[in-house]
Design a protein around this nucleic acid. Structure first.
Lengths: 199, 199
DNA sequence: GTCTATAGCGGGATAGAC
DNA sequence: GTCTATCCCGCTATAGAC
C-alpha cells in the first residue's frame, strides 16, 4: 500500500484505461465490431501496445467482464440497506443511465452476440446473468415479505419478467430515445404495487 | 399470372433463397457478423453471384426487413379474429419458436447493433418496431375494453412493458434455454389478469 | 511499455468472361 | 445467372527493435 504511494505516477495506468475503453465499446457496439485499433487510437498508441497488456481480444473482454461483475456485487452492497422500492428504482436507473449515454448493458450486447463469442467470454456472460437475476429475485422476495411489493406469481418469475423488461427497454430506448424507456419504468412500478394496487 | 405458370421451374428462385438465408443469419448472428461468403457457400455459388442479386449488403438486409415487415402485417390479419388472450399467446409463441430454433427476432439483433447499421437499415428497424408496438398497444386496449385483460396503467405503457419483456426474454432464452423463457410467459399472463387477478 | 513491420486471413465490391 | 480474378481494406496476432 505505502509502496504504491511512493510512485504515484510511475507509469500511466494504461491497463485500466484499456479496460475502460473496451467496456465502453462493448456497451456501444458489442464484441464483434470494435477492434484493437479503435482502442489504440483513443490512447494514442499502436495496436501492438494493447496486445502487450492483453494477449488476445478474448482475454481483454473477459477481464472487462470480471471487473464488471465485481462492480455489480459492490453496487448491490451499497444499496442493500435501502428500502426495496429504492433498490428497484436504483437498478432501473442504472439501465436508464446507459441509454442516456448511448449505451446498453453488456448483457444486451453480449447476450445478442452470445452464439458468436469465444467460450471463456460466454462463461462470463452466464455468470453475470446469474448474479443479476439471482439478486433481483431475492429483492422481490424480501420486498413482498415486507409488504413493500404486491404482485401475483413467484418472486422468481416476477424478477425474470422485470429483469428482461429492463433488457428489452434498453433496445427500445436505443432506437426511440428515453421517453419510451421511462414509460416502461413507470409501468413496472404499477405491476409490483408501488402505486395503485387493485383495478 | 398464367405466364408465371408457364415456366414454373424456369429459374431457381435464387433471390428468394438468398433472402431466406440472410434472414436466418440476421436472427442468429445479426448484421455485422455474417458475410456474402456465408450465404454463397450455403447456395453452392460464389459471392459475386449474390452481389448480382443484391448490389450491397445493406440492400440485401433492407430487402429482408421489407419482407419481414409485410409478413408481420399479414400475421396480424390471420389472428385478428381470435380472442385477445389468444392473440397475445400467439405473439409470445412467435418469440418462443425463435428461441427454440436458436434465433431471436430481428428487433433484438438489429436493435443491439442499431448504432452500427447503415442508415436505410436503421429506418427499417424503426418502422418494424413501430408496427409491432402499435399493434400490441391496440390489442391490449381492445382486450381491456372487452374485459379479457385486467391491469393498471395505460394500455400503451403495458404494451411497451410486455413487448420489451419479449425482447429481453429472447436474450435470456438464448443463454439459458427455454425454461426461463416460459417462466416469463407465465408471469405475463398474471400481470394482464389472464389467471388469478387480485392478490 | 511502446514501436515498426509483417504475416495471414477474411471482408465488400467490381470487371469482364462464359 | 454464375463464374474467375482481382482490388483494397481492416482485422488479429506475432517478432524483434528501441
Amino acid at each position: 500500500m505505502s509502496s504504491a504511494q511512493q510512485k504515484p505516477k510511475a507509469k500511466r495506468d494504461t491497463k485500466r484505461l484499456i479496460l475502460d475503453i473496451c467496456e465502453r465499446y462493448l456497451m456501444q457496439w458489442g464484441y464483434n465490431v470494435f477492434s484493437y485499433h479503435h482502442i489504440a487510437d483513443e490512447l494514442g498508441v499502436k495496436n501492438a501496445a494493447i496486445h502487450y497488456h492483453f494477449r488476445t481480444k478474448s482475454d481483454l473482454a473477459v477481464a472487462v467482464l470480471l471487473r464488471y461483475r465485481a462492480r455489480f456485487i459492490r453496487w448491490t452492497q451499497t444499496v442493500e440497506a435501502l428500502p426495496p422500492q429504492a433498490q428497484l428504482d436504483a437498478y432501473m436507473r442504472l439501465s436508464l443511465n446507459f441509454v442516456l449515454n448511448q449505451r446498453v448493458g453488456v448483457l444486451v450486447t453480449l447476450g445478442t452476440e452470445y452464439n458468436t463469442l469465444p467460450e471463456p467470454l460466454q462463461e462470463q456472460v452466464k455468470l453475470l446473468q446469474d448474479e443479476i437475476f439471482t439478486w433481483f429475485a431475492a429483492l422481490l422476495e424480501r420486498g413482498r415479505s415486507s409488504g413493500d411489493f404486491l404482485f401475483n406469481g413467484t418472486a422468481h418469475a416476477m424478477a425474470s419478467l422485470i429483469a428482461t423488461t429492463m433488457l428489452g427497454s434498453q433496445l427500445l430506448g436505443r432506437v426511440r430515445g428515453i421517453g419510451p424507456f421511462e414509460e416502461v419504468v413507470e409501468q413496472v412500478h404499477l405491476i409490483v404495487g408501488m402505486k395503485r394496487n387493485s383495478p
